[in-house]
Nucleic acid binder design. Structure first.
Length: 292
DNA sequence: TGTCTAATTAATATTACTTCA
DNA sequence: CTTGAAGTAATATTAATTAGA
């Protein structure tokens, strides 16, 4: 969560919002929720089929099924020749995999070798989700800073540069946009929350002022001793507090006296209002509006 | 037909906690 | 009692998939 200053709400720096640091840098882990203590601390001697380690261990070989090997035949690799480092079909039951079919092992080896994947990585446990290297991620980030969408030409070039499939580059950009949007939504949410708090507070104060004024109206004996009204007026031209009109002000020759049509109607000035007007950066709504 | 968003899945990493020598 | 290693579970991150516009 991004902390916004409590007092005023500064404009949200677009450079951050739309060109945030890499996700891994951004995602400083929020304070984790208090750990949920297991209701029972008994450890079982046999592996728990639900445990992640058990799943991870057995995922690829369990029941004699090599999940790296997919049943069907043809390969649907979009761009032959450009292959991913160790990306594989991510889901056994993935419809795309079923639909498209992969000559699993053979193709996997081919892919791996084309990227110089070591035998170690390409062994039985090679059904690994691709993790982009730091360099790859950095290049993608850089590219995203320049343009958060890619045309086919850019996509191909980037894929070639990174040694990835164009589809992977495309997916990365999609996910990156989604992440950016999520971050922006969080920031907007915070902003609106602050606005709401400010307005609530202002409302409370105004209500109190009304109450005070009503009380004064009912108690004219105190009228003369009252403190100056807090709802003053301000000259919009010079942004100075204007004295309430009196008989003497008509002959007042002070330099603040304005004459003529340029002197507009004074606007109320709320002494409790935040010193700086609330400004904000564009929200996703604005962004969407721009897009459409 | 291709690309987008949104929602979702699943692999992997990280973290917190427990147990035990 | 303290400490460090090892194991586990919960959670976070993110690549990939899917559906629909």
């Amino acid at each position: 969560m991004i902390e916004l200053p409590h007092t005023t709400t500064p404009p949200i720096p677009l450079s951050f919002l739309y060109n945030p640091p890499p996700p891994h840098a951004l995602s400083s882990k929020p304070d984790p929720p208090p750990p949920v203590k297991p209701s029972c601390n008994v450890t079982f001697p046999s592996p728990d089929p639900n445990s992640s380690s058990y799943r991870a261990e057995t995922r690829s070989t369990l029941r004699g099924i090599d999940v790296n090997r997919l049943p069907s035949t043809a390969d649907c690799e979009e761009e032959a020749g450009v292959s991913s480092p160790n990306s594989t079909i991510s889901s056994i039951s993935g419809k795309r995999s079923e639909r498209d079919g992969i000559n699993g092992e053979e193709h996997e080896m081919e892919r791996a070798s084309s990227r110089g994947i070591s035998d170690e990585e390409d062994g039985e446990t090679s059904r690994k989700k691709l993790r982009l290297s730091k360099d790859q991620a950095a290049i993608l980030e850089e590219s995203f800073k320049e343009h958060n969408t890619l045309n086919p030409k850019q996509k191909m070039a980037l894929a070639k540069q990174l040694g990835l499939r164009p589809r992977q580059v495309e997916v990365w950009f999609q996910n990156r946009r989604a992440r950016t949007k999520l971050k922006q939504t969080e920031v907007d949410c915070e902003f609106l929350k602050r606005c709401c708090e400010n307005l609530t507070e202002e409302n409370r104060r105004l209500q109190k002022e009304v109450q005070d004024l009503r009380a004064l109206k009912l108690s004219p004996q105190f009228y003369m001793h009252m403190t100056p009204p807090t709802t003053l007026t301000m000259c919009p031209s010079c942004e100075r507090v204007a004295a309430p009109p009196t008989a003497s002000s008509a002959v007042d020759a002070s330099p603040h006296t304005h004459i003529g049509p340029s002197h507009h109607r004074p606007i109320p000035m709320n002494p409790w209002a935040p010193a700086a007007p609330i400004t904000r950066g564009p929200t996703p709504f604005d962004v969407n509006r721009r897009r459409s």
